[in-house]
Amino acid sequence: MRLTAITAAVALTAGVAFAETVAPDNVAFDEYGAVEVSLTGTPGNAENGAKVMTDRGLGNCVACHVVSALSADFQGEVGPSLDGVGGYRSEAELRGVLVNAKKMFDGTVMPAFYKVSGFIRPGDGYTGKAATEITPILSAQEIEDVVAFLMTLKDS
């Protein structure tokens, strides 16, 4: 009896959290490609954002960007350095770039990290096989975490 009640409560909370998370296809961009509203309503965790940015299986942002505040080895040079980006970009702009950078930078090589449709020959991870289901590269909360970390980068 009690267990059932707890389960129901958990289901309820999970349901609420889910309802608050903006699904990839429902993200609203403004005309400049910024995204005003948090994807989750839960403030981002900058520390986890830093991990997401260096983890090869997650953001791997340092593959293309130099971020001096991160100790990751082999930081790439395909994109601009992100040092100081939190000083000249707003949170909404950074969220927009992460969700789908192509909305702001036409034709950019930067991948869209929170997108599930419109791909050509999407694969199943790095297997080279066809995808059976498509999940965004980063979760809604991971996006918020990375935004929180980027906002700490004030000095260039």
């Binding site: 694969g123 096989k129 066809a130």
Partner: peptide, 8 residues
């Protein structure tokens, strides 16, 4: 192509 997370 595999490295684009694509179907080769």
């Amino acid at each position: 192509i595999r490295d684009t997370r694509g179907e080769t």
